[in-house]
């Protein structure tokens, strides 16, 4: 991939900043998301909480469904490929989606290697729990990062942990003398040039959103206050009792994350948020965030 293509792919993520990207499973939901003010939709067959409930192998969605959603909305359409699944990514690129999420929410196809994302023209977003993981994905060609959180739980605690972990590492790097950067790179499994970039700029070289467990407007505002540049909401919208209202409220809360008065207004009378799961009830082997190498 030439350098300008990669720059433009990073640029598209810049245009999404301050916005909300919503998981949708059909045309009707995609239209609700667009009307509520989503900056993009993630087209997938089952939202993460259903994947969690139903089990089995979670794969790329039916191209027909992705195609229909692309026809129905004017905002960017993203879709998920399994970690390391070269062919699924090629299929999604052939469908001309606007972004591919190489996602731990689907069952990994490769237990050692992620995609070489530089082999594609289409941009990729990848999940990360910490700075080292984020920089490995960027080193492979990701044009956007999202903290993983724990998808399908409606519990924001993991998203918070991952965002705080990443921000803490960035602050550490900013204060490190140059001679310590190589050891940081080694200990965190991160490419050295990207470590130097973060030390010099105090931020990732790509846009960083929050994902995994965001279920209310207040959750979205919390993640923005912790330094996220935008929000992914998966199950949180279409598993709530009034998806349209919840979607609109989360969009408003993300734009006005530092205005408690607006947050109070938009949090009113939303009905029930998705039920949610306490993290201690999820066995280690069923935690999606652990998927990623």
């Amino acid at each position: 991939m030439d350098k300008q293509v990669y720059e433009r792919n990073k640029n598209l993520a810049q245009m999404l900043k301050g916005g909300v990207i919503m998981d949708v499973t059909n045309v009707e939901q995609a239209k609700i998301a667009e009307n509520a003010g989503a900056v993009a939709v993630m087209a997938l067959e089952r939202v993460p909480s259903d994947i969690r409930k139903q089990g089995g192998v979670a794969r790329m969605s039916d191209p027909k469904m992705i195609w229909e959603i692309k026809q129905a909305v004017s905002i960017p359409v993203m879709a998920k490929a399994r970690i390391g699944h070269i062919a699924e990514a090629q299929i999604l690129e052939a469908l001309e989606v606007d972004y591919i999420d190489e996602s731990e929410v689907l069952t990994p196809a490769d237990d050692r290697f992620h995609l070489n994302k530089f082999a594609f023209k289409v941009p990729f977003v990848c999940g990360a729990r910490n700075l080292g993981e984020a920089l490995r994905r960027i080193g492979e060609g990701a044009a956007m990062i999202r903290t993983k959180g724990e998808a399908g739980t409606g519990n924001v605690v993991e998203a918070v942990r991952h965002m705080r972990t990443m921000m803490e590492a960035i602050r550490q790097l900013q204060n490190m003398p140059r001679e310590e950067l190589m050891t940081f790179a080694k200990e965190n499994g991160a490419p050295y040039d990207l470590v130097v970039y973060v030390a010099e700029h105090g931020k990732l070289p790509v846009v960083n959103f929050a994902a995994g467990g965001i279920a209310t407007p207040a959750d979205a505002a919390l993640m923005m206050q912790l330094g996220s540049e935008g929000i992914f909401v998966g199950s949180g919208i279409f598993k709530s009792s009034d998806p349209e209202k919840m979607a609109r409220a989360i969009v408003k809360a993300t734009a006005f994350y530092n205005d408690p008065k607006v947050l109070a207004e938009v949090s009113e009378g939303l009905g029930e948020a998705m039920k949610g799961i306490e993290l201690s009830q999820i066995p280690e082997t069923e935690r999606y965030a652990e998927r990623g190498w």
């Binding site: 810049q14 245009m15 999404l16 900043k17 301050g18 916005g19 667009e34 509520a36 003010g37 989503a38 900056v39 993009a40 004017s74 905002i75 960017p76 969009v251 408003k252 734009a255 006005f256």
Partner: peptide, 15 residues
């Protein structure tokens, strides 16, 4: 600025 016009337009109206 650049962004999603539908999103920005909705927020212009709402606020």
């Amino acid at each position: 600025p650049g962004g999603e016009s539908t999103t920005i337009s909705k927020l212009l109206s709402i606020f």
